[in-house]
Design a protein around this nucleic acid. Structure first.
Lengths: 334, 334
DNA sequence: CAAATAGGTGTAATCGATTTCAAAGGAGTC
DNA sequence: GACTCCTTTGAAATCGATTACACCTATTTG
C-alpha cells in the first residue's frame, strides 16, 4: 500500500505539499497539484485514515445507541442519521444495547477512548443524572427519548399534543368512552402520551373513568391482554387508543377474538406508524413520527456540537402527523 | 485527558511498562503492575484507541454492508454479527447502501483506507467479478447472498433444499396444483428457490404447469399482483408458495380480497420468517433462516480471515427450519 | 530602490500508543 | 567465582499522516 511519502517522491515534492493537495486547501500551484494528483493516481494512493485520525485527534465516527435494532421504529431514525453523516464524511457505528444498561454505558464510553467523536442516544435506560453529566463532557444528542428539563440537545415530537390530537379525532367521530393503553409509566414519553390523552378528554368533556386507563409494556401481547381487560368492563369503551402500534395490533387481535369488528364495534388507534401498521387489517390509524427527520436533525445538531462544543441547544420538537387509515372508521364516515 | 506518559510518571515507571500492563501480557512484577493499575485508576486513564490503532495498523472495526436496514430480515443477522464482534473487541460500522451500488463499493473501499479491518456483505449488487477480485485483497465474507462457484467465504442456507421442503409439506397435505411466486430471477437465491420448487414437483409427481410460475420483486404489492394472476387462471392453484414473506403477505391479501379463505380455499407459504409473519392472519407458514446464526458464523469466519489471511473457506450452508403455522392448514389437518 | 507582502514549498515536530533492543539484576549451575 | 539464563525494566524507534515555522522568490508599494 502506497503511502504519502511514496507519492511525494514520485511527484518530486515534499509530503507537506501532498498533504496540502489532499486537503484541497491552501497555496499549491496548479502545476504542482497536477503532478501530485497524477502520482496519487499512478500509485492508487489512499490516505491512511488511522494516521490522519491520530494526528487530528478525531475519528470521524459517531455512535448511535439504540435499545434494539430489530425494532423497525428505529431504522428510519438511523437512516436519517446516516444520511447527514455521510454528507459530512462521518461513519456511523451501531450501538445496539439489546436493552442492556451496561452496554449503553459502554458505547458512551467509546467517546472517551476517541473511538467516536459523538453519540446519539435513541434510548435512555441509564439514569438521567449520568446522562446529563456525560453530556457536559462529550458531544451528545438525544433523539425520540428525552429527559425532562435537561439542558442538553434533544430531538423529539411533542407527545402530549400528539396524543391529544388522537382524542380530538376520536371525539369528532362521536366516541364518548375511550379506553387508553399506556406504555410503561416509568418512561417519560408514556407519561406524556397519557397526559395528552387526559387533556383531550377534558377538553372535549368526555368521561374520565380510571378503569379505562390501563398500562402495557409496548409489546403486542401486552396490547392484547390490556385490550381484553378493557373490553370485559361492564361498560366497555367504543374506542381504544394504544400508546404504540405494537400494542394497537395486539388490541385489534383481541377485539377480533371477542367476536367484535374493527372499526364498526370498536375503533383502534396506534402510535408511531411502523411498517406493520399498513399491513394488518384493518390498516391502523396512527400518529406518524417524522423518524427520518428526527434522525437528520439529531445528526445536524451533533455535528455543530462536535465542531464548537459551546453552542447551547435545547429541546427541539418536530411536527408529527395523524395518519387516518381504516381502524377507526374515520376515512369511511368522514 | 490523561495519557500514558502521565500514568508512567505517576507510577514511577516507563511508558513501556504501562503498555505492558495494559496488554496484560508479558513480564511485569506484581508490585509494578499494582502501582501502574493504581495510577491508571487515579487518573481515570483511558487508552487512546486512535494511537493504538495507528501503531497496530488495525481499526478493530468491521463493516456490515446491507441493502436496507429497514428490512427486518437483516436486523437479526446484524445482531448475530455484533454478538461475536463485541466478544472480540470489534466495533460494527453500519453500511446501509439504500440499494445503491456505488455506496456498496464505497463501504468496501473503507478497508483500503484502514477505516475497517474487514467487511461482511449481506448483499451483492456489485458485479461478482469485482467482489471476487476484492476478496483477494481484503478480508471479506458474504452472508445470506452468495456467488455461484466463487472461492470466497459465504454463509447461507441451502435455498434449493429449503424450497423443496416446502413442496414436500404441501404435497403431504394433498395439494396437487401449486403456484409459485419467484423473486427477481437475476438474483441467485431466487433461482435456487425456483429450482427447489421444480425439484419438489418432479419428485412428488405433481403437475409442472409453467403458467403456475410467476415472478415478483420481493415486495408486498408484487406478491399481491402475482397472486391475483395465479388465482385468475382457468384452473387456479390450491396453494401458493411465495419466495419471501412479504410477497406471501401480499398473496394472502389477494386471496382474501377475492372472497376466498386462507388456508381453506388456498394455502399460502412464505420464506424467511420475518416478525410480521406471526402477526398477520392467518399466521404464515414459512421457512425460517437461522439469521442470528448466519451473522455469528459470518463474523467468526471474518475474524479468522483477519487474523491469518491465508485460510481457505468455502460455502457454508446452515440448516433452515420449516415453521408450520396456520396459513396452509398443516397444523389443523395433520 | 528598499521594504513589505504574498504565494509556494520544504523541514521537522507532533499526535499517543506499541514494540524492539539492550541492559540491569538476581538465581542457579558447575 | 565465573558463567549462563531468566525476569524485569527503560530508551528510543515507529506507525503515516498534519501542520507550525522557516525560507525563498516574485510582485507590489511608498
Amino acid at each position: 500500500m502506497a503511502k504519502m511519502i511514496d507519492v511525494a517522491r514520485l511527484a518530486g515534492v515534499s509530503v507537506a505539499t501532498v498533504s496540502r493537495v489532499l486537503a484541497g486547501s491552501a497555496h499549491v500551484s496548479r502545476e504542482t497539484r497536477e503532478k501530485v494528483l497524477r502520482a496519487m493516481a499512478d500509485l492508487d494512493y489512499k490516505p491512511n485514515l488511522l494516521a490522519r485520525n491520530l494526528r487530528k485527534m478525531e475519528s470521524k465516527t459517531i455512535v448511535v445507541v439504540i435499545p434494539d435494532i430489530s425494532n423497525p421504529f428505529f431504522s428510519d431514525v438511523i437512516r436519517g442519521i446516516q444520511h447527514v453523516a455521510k454528507e459530512h464524511g462521518y461513519h456511523v457505528l451501531l450501538g445496539d444495547t439489546q436493552n442492556d444498561v451496561d452496554a449503553e454505558w459502554d458505547f458512551i464510553e467509546m467517546i472517551k477512548e476517541r473511538a467516536a467523536d459523538g453519540v446519539i442516544l435513541v434510548t435512555a435506560r441509564t439514569s438521567p443524572e449520568k446522562i446529563m453529566e456525560m453530556a457536559q463532557e462529550v458531544p451528545l444528542v438525544m433523539a425520540c427519548e428525552y429527559i425532562q428539563g435537561a439542558e442538553l440537545p434533544m430531538v423529539t415530537i411533542d407527545n402530549v399534543i400528539s396524543a391529544k390530537r388522537v382524542v380530538d379525532h376520536l371525539a369528532a367521530l362521536g366516541h364518548r368512552r375511550i379506553g387508553f393503553i399506556a406504555g410503561p409509566l416509568h418512561v417519560i414519553i408514556s407519561r406524556d402520551r397519557l397526559q395528552g390523552f387526559v387533556l383531550g378528554l377534558r377538553e372535549h368533556g368526555l368521561e374520565q373513568d380510571s378503569s379505562l386507563i390501563v398500562e402495557g409494556d409496548f409489546s403486542i401481547p401486552s396490547g392484547y391482554d390490556q385490550a381484553v381487560r378493557l373490553l370485559q368492563l361492564p361498560e366497555p369503551p367504543t374506542a381504544i387508543f394504544a400508546s404504540n402500534d405494537e400494542m394497537a395490533i395486539g388490541a385489534v387481535k383481541a377485539v377480533k377474538q371477542m367476536g367484535l369488528k374493527v372499526p364498526q364495534d370498536v375503533a383502534v388507534v396506534g402510535f408511531d406508524d411502523i411498517p406493520m401498521a399498513t399491513v394488518i387489517e384493518p390498516a391502523l390509524t396512527t400518529i406518524c413520527q417524522p423518524k427520518f427527520e428526527i434522525g437528520k436533525k439529531a445528526m445536524e445538531i451533533l455535528l455543530q456540537l462536535i465542531q464548537q462544543s459551546n453552542r447551547s441547544h435545547g429541546h427541539l420538537k418536530l411536527p408529527e402527523k395523524l395518519i387516518v387509515r381504516d381502524s377507526c372508521g374515520g376515512r369511511l364516515k368522514g
